[in-house]
Design a protein around this nucleic acid. Structure first.
Length: 865
RNA sequence: GGGGACGUGGCGGAACUGGUAGACGCGCCGGACUUAAAAUCCGUUGAUUUCGGUCGUCCGGGUUCGAUUCCCGGCGUCCCCA
């Protein structure tokens, strides 16, 4: 009897799968009547090394892919590389390595590591987004969007990252800092390329309704991100002489027209045209506006920044009450690109307005009365009232509820020609220009005479030049001696290429479509995409809930409108998996220490830690996401080396629900490793060669084993379908314990025969989780072909059904005994059996039975007093 | 400030739509094997107990024959938005 050796077994089976080409995806024409299934994990950034998060992500996808294969689906399960981006340029700047070489070297080593994982991937479809073939096709569809008017250039205020020297999308600014560099973001005016995602705002909201296999959380986040609100645009006239160019008044946008009578001031954005005009004439205004430029441009940044304002001295008339005038301020909390860049402030019912009013001693007039409050005494202090209530202090609106009042004001303003009801979105058009080298060049040419000219199709791809320098900050494309100088495709005059490259989120917004035919002559092979899309199961981190997942939905819709595709939603099913965490450790000097240099000492139920080297005490810290900075990292290769790939795959899925974080522990992976060995031991103890088939009707233990096996088929199938891998794995452990109770040594022919059937089932059920082990086991029992090609075991409903039930018997809700009855037995019979039970009868002594509740196959509860 | 999720043994977690709380794993404790240790294997393991029980799913109420599950009010942790 040989011990299972993963180091020998695992590479052998990876090679066997590879040689048999089992993971090559069938084209639609070869699939016959097999249904298709597209499983995709978010493709990795080629940082150079895989980490445990990758192991968990790809192991989960592999479980689904292998399961669906075994269930008879034609499965597409590809892999590629999200390969453009800043880290490659940082490596170039810090170490003088070319981004291209750095990236492709990283891909080579990560590919090798991923292949160790034994994933059922069709590697023939692999590509990297930095391959000229890929980004050339991206340039082609970009131009088709340009032609459709979905791409445009505009000067706008942008988030500028002074460290990376590039523009960031709002989504990439977190707490006022660049998401990658961490530098405080500045506002700058620049001409940028934009994708018209706002054209699809409504469609992107409506589409969420059909995504019933997405987590609610993600759908809510996207809806909030798009932030549709209905409101009113209305015009305020200047009370005195209007400033030149603003004779028509000031247009503001509000979502609370019901509070119009509570308005006490107007505020305009620092970059509002009126602010510009006033700044030209007044140095104090100019200085204030300049001051406001500091800090991030996103809503959250502005919200958290201190409210600051400057009184312009101008006044406007209240549109519904000509006797009232309101001062016009410039406010740093007003956003130019939301609504009209101007608001009316109603301090009593908006917290920002209230903060502002309290700071500058402006009037605070409540106009919404909370339920149960007295209109004579109700006042607003430092907290604005934003809840429901009745409108008051508002002339013709008095007594109305908020929604009715909103409608009345909109009607009134529209009738007077002072404005119009309007829908606005928090979502902005997607700024895709990046002033970086390592990205997809935007395929246009700027000509003095012809303006912006698309690069002709036949000249695509516009390839990045290799000979660039990184000795200075800024965009290497801009200072390349020749690359950008070209002849205008239209007039032939000297012209210049666009030197901005595309945001890398563009690269990842369509790769799933390219995978359906990665060698196609067009960006997307429409027939192949129609067959495979949408992705049936997409798996990745929840951190992409708004960025990547919203962009991909938009691009898919946009490409549909250009005719390149025929689906609107790219991902029918989405699963967001949790992270891999680990305890943190700090050494005697307070520095982080890596787990492998720490020894944990158990003392009863508590534990402490010391340095392996020297025995100095170590402080056990919080459990956090594995990160290099906290050193709480275990390297996948080390784990594969010590315990094998199967044990690592099994453990990252066994200890926690997949959507939650899993805590990596040594004990846990050792448990998974023990499971692998115990499974092998059961197979290896079975006599070699075919086992004589014996009908297992006489010996109940043999029949029980088969029944357990068939119940396991049902339970595990359900667990995988429902993404409850931890529960499914627990069932596998449970079954292993049952089969161990009937060892092969000294077994009767009947038991041996039942074991043979049970083991055949077990080998196929463990295959999605521990595929190499499954092959070894399958081979050991003489299975037909390879386990990877074996069909999923079929559940025999008669065997899986339980004919006997153990029902707990409660008296007044407390468990007092149990009775064994036939499944489905009627209430009256069960009641009789329960009351006759000796233990139950004892507890009923001196009591009168008032009522007996029987829940079929579940429980009996006797009410007595 | 708004919205959401969560809170169960020493630990990770299980319990399908209200029906035996603690599956499965880890750890601990005990035993076998060993000169010894590691590994492996077997067993115990929510608390308490006068061994009849009693208590127990963050806290306080409620609905119910029955609540980890549903409702109301707190406390705490995490996430998203502002």
């Amino acid at each position: 009897m040989a011990r299972y050796n993963p180091k020998e077994s695992e590479p052998r089976w990876v090679k066997a799968w590879d040689q048999a080409g089992v993971f090559a995806t069938k084209a639609q024409s070869d699939a016959g009547d097999q249904p298709k299934y597209y499983v995709l994990e978010m493709f990795p950034y080629p940082s150079g090394r895989i980490h445990m998060g990758h192991v968990r992500n790809y192991a989960m996808g592999d479980v689904v892919a292998r399961f669906k294969r075994a269930r008879g689906y034609n499965v597409l399960h590809p892999m590629g590389w999200d390969a453009f981006g800043m880290p490659a340029e940082n490596a170039a700047m810090e170490r003088g390595i070319h981004p291209k070489g750095w990236t492709y070297d990283n891909i080579a080593s990560m590919r090798q590591q991923l292949k160790l994982l034994g994933l059922s991937i069709d590697w023939s479809r692999e590509f990297a987004t930095c391959d000229p073939d890929y980004y050339g096709h991206q340039q082609a569809w970009f131009l088709s969007l340009l032609q459709k008017g979905l791409v445009y250039r505009k000067e706008g205020v942008v988030n500028w990252d002074p460290v990376d020297m590039t523009v960031l999308a709002n989504e990439q600014v977190i707490d006022g800092r660049g998401w990658r560099s961490g530098a405080v973001v500045e506002k700058r005016k620049l001409t940028q390329w934009f994708l018209r995602i706002t054209d699809y705002a409504d469609a992107l909201i409506e589409g969420l309704g059909g995504l019933d296999r997405w987590p609610d959380k993600v759908r809510t986040m996207q809806e909030n991100w798009i932030g549709r609100s209905r409101g009113l645009r209305l015009r305020f006239q200047f009370a005195d002489q209007a400033p030149t160019g603003f004779e028509a008044g000031l247009e503001v946008y509000t979502t609370r027209p019901d509070t119009l009578f509570g308005a006490s001031f107007l505020a305009i954005a620092p970059d509002h045209p009126l602010s510009d005009a006033l700044a030209k004439a007044n140095p104090a205004v100019a200085a204030f506006v300049a001051d406001c430029r500091k800090g991030g441009a996103s809503g959250a940044d502005i919200e958290t920044a201190e409210k600051k304002g400057l009184d312009t001295g101008l006044c406007v008339r209240h549109p519904l009450d000509p006797n009232q005038t309101l001062p016009v301020w410039i406010g740093n909390f007003v956003l130019m690109d939301y609504g009209t860049g101007a608001i009316f402030g109603c301090p009593a019912h908006d917290q920002r307005d209230l903060d502002f009013a309290r700071k500058y001693a402006l009037r605070v007039q409540p106009v919404v009365l909370p339920p149960g409050q007295d209109p004579r005494t109700f006042s607003v202090g430092l907290e604005a009232y934003t809840g429901p209530g009745t409108v008051f202090n508002s002339q013709f609106l008095d007594g109305l509820d908020i929604e009715t009042a909103k409608a009345r004001v909109i009607d009134q303003i529209e009738a007077a020609g002072q404005g119009k009801g309007a829908t606005v979105y928090r979502l902005r058009d997607w700024g895709v220009s990046r002033q970086r080298y390592w990205g997809c060049p935007i395929p246009v040419i700027h000509c003095q005479a012809c303006g912006v000219v698309p690069v002709p199709r036949e000249q695509l791809p516009v390839i990045l030049p290799d000979d660039v320098t990184f000795d200075r900050p800024g965009n290497p494309l801009l200072r390349h001696p020749t690359w950008r100088h070209v002849a205008c495709p239209t007039c032939g005059a000297a012209a210049e290429r666009e030197t901005d490259t595309l945001d890398t989120f563009v690269d990842s917004s369509w790769y799933f479509a390219r995978f359906t035919d990665p060698k196609a002559a067009d960006p997307i092979n429409t027939a192949a995409a129609d067959y495979w899309l949408p992705v049936d199961q997409y798996i990745g981190g929840v951190e992409h809930a708004v960025l990547h997942l919203l962009y991909a939905r938009f691009v898919t819709r946009a490409l549909k409108d250009t005719g390149a595709l025929d689906v609107a939603e790219p991902f029918a099913g989405l699963f967001t998996q949790g992270m891999v965490t680990h305890e943190t450790y700090r050494g005697p000097d307070g520095q982080w220490v890596e787990p492998q240099s720490v020894e944990i000492i158990a003392e009863g139920n508590s534990r402490r830690a010391v340095m392996i080297d020297g025995g100095a005490p170590v402080v056990i810290g919080d459990i956090e996401k594995m990160s290099k900075s906290k050193k709480n990292v275990v390297a996948p290769e080390d784990i594969f080396d010590a315990y094998g790939v199967d044990a690592a795959r099994l453990f990252v899925m066994s200890d926690s629900p997949p959507e939650r974080d899993v805590q990596w522990t040594n004990g846990g992976v050792e448990g998974a490793w023990r499971f692998v060995h115990r499974v092998w031991t059961e197979f290896d103890s079975q006599p070699e060669g075919a086992v004589a088939k014996v009908p297992y009707s006489h010996e109940s233990r043999a029949l029980d084993l088969l029944k357990a096996a068939h119940r396991l088929i049902g339970a595990l199938t359900d667990s995988i379908e429902a993404f409850r891998f931890n529960g499914g794995i627990a069932k596998l452990y449970e079954f292993l314990n049952i089969i161990k109770g009937l060892p092969a040594a000294g077994a009767t022919p009947e038991i041996l025969s039942a074991r043979a059937d049970a083991l055949s089932i077990l080998a196929r059920l463990v295959a999605p989780f521990t595929p190499h082990l499954a092959e070894a086991c399958w081979e050991r029992i003489g299975g037909d072909g390879m386990a990877v090609n074996a069909p999923w075991p079929v559940l025999d409903p008669e065997l899986a059904a339980d004919d006997q039930r153990i029902l707990p018997v409660q008296i007044n809700g407390k468990r007092r005994g149990e009775v064994t009855v036939l499944a489905g037995l009627g209430h009256a019979e069960v009641e009789q059996i329960a009351l006759a039970d000796e233990g139950v009868a004892r507890h009923l002594e001196g009591l009168t039975v008032r009522k007996v509740i029987v829940v079929t196959d579940r429980i009996v509860n006797i009410v007595a007093n």
